[in-house]
Simulated assay, not measured.
Amino acid sequence: MRRSNFRDDWTAARTKACVSGNVHFHDLRHTGNTLASSTGASTRELMTRMGHSTTRAALIYQHMTSDRDQHIAGKLGEMVRQARKGSDPPPSGT
């Protein structure tokens, strides 16, 4: 692809993918890295994927999403349940 005809190629690709609205090519980069962040990728891993040399740039992609918040809450609940199991007194009669 050449820079001179990229806009036409991008518009055709969006149309073929049924993506409407004001979606820019750079939005793919942002979305991809936001999704990578939601999988649990570390800041260092995001920096490597993006080619960033500073944490500040990588942190842009570490948005809090509701599914990620639910995942964190679930893991915290699991940790609490495990800690309680370890501190429960033995059942009576043993």
Results as ranks from 00 to 15, higher is better:
Trp10Asn: 05
His71Lys: 15
Phe25His: 11
Ala17Pro: 03
Thr15Leu: 08
Arg29Met: 07
Arg29Glu: 02
Ala17Leu: 10
Met47Cys: 08
Thr11Asn: 14
Asp8Ala: 14
Met64His: 10
Met64Ala: 15
Thr15Ser: 09
Asn22Phe: 09
Ala41Ile: 00
Glu45Ala: 12
Arg44Pro: 02
His26Cys: 05
Thr11Cys: 07
Arg68Asn: 13
Thr55Val: 14
Ser53Tyr: 02
Thr55Leu: 03
Gly40Trp: 04
Thr15Trp: 03
Met64Ser: 14
Thr54Glu: 00
Ala73Cys: 10
His24Lys: 14
Thr55Tyr: 02
Gly21Thr: 07
Lys16Ser: 09
Gln62Asn: 11
Arg29Val: 08
Arg3Tyr: 13
Phe25Tyr: 11
Gln70Glu: 13
Met47Asp: 03
Val19Met: 11
Ser38Trp: 09
Thr55Asp: 09
Met47Ala: 07
Thr54Pro: 01
Thr65Ala: 05
Ala36Pro: 01
Asp27Val: 00
Ser38Val: 03
Arg14Glu: 01
Gly51Val: 03
Asp9Gln: 13
Met47Val: 07
Arg3Met: 10
Ile60Leu: 08
Ser20His: 09
Met64Cys: 10
Gly74Val: 01
Gly74Ile: 03
Arg68Pro: 03
Leu28Pro: 06
Arg7His: 08
Leu35Val: 07
His71Pro: 03
Ser37Ala: 15
His30Ser: 08
Ser38Gln: 13
Phe25Gln: 11
Thr55Ala: 13
Ile60Lys: 08
Val19Glu: 01
Ser37Tyr: 07
Val23Pro: 01
Trp10Glu: 04
Trp10Met: 06
Arg56His: 12
Asp9Glu: 12
Ala36Arg: 12
His63Met: 08
Gln70Leu: 13
Arg14Leu: 15
Phe6Gly: 02
Asp27Glu: 00
Ala17Arg: 06
Arg14His: 02
Ser66Asn: 11
Arg49Lys: 07
Gln70Ile: 10
His24Gln: 11
Arg2Met: 07
Ala58Cys: 05
Ser38Thr: 11
Thr43Glu: 10
Leu28Glu: 00
Ile60Gly: 04
Asp8Arg: 14
Ser66Cys: 01
Phe25Ala: 14
Gly21Pro: 10
Gly21Ile: 05
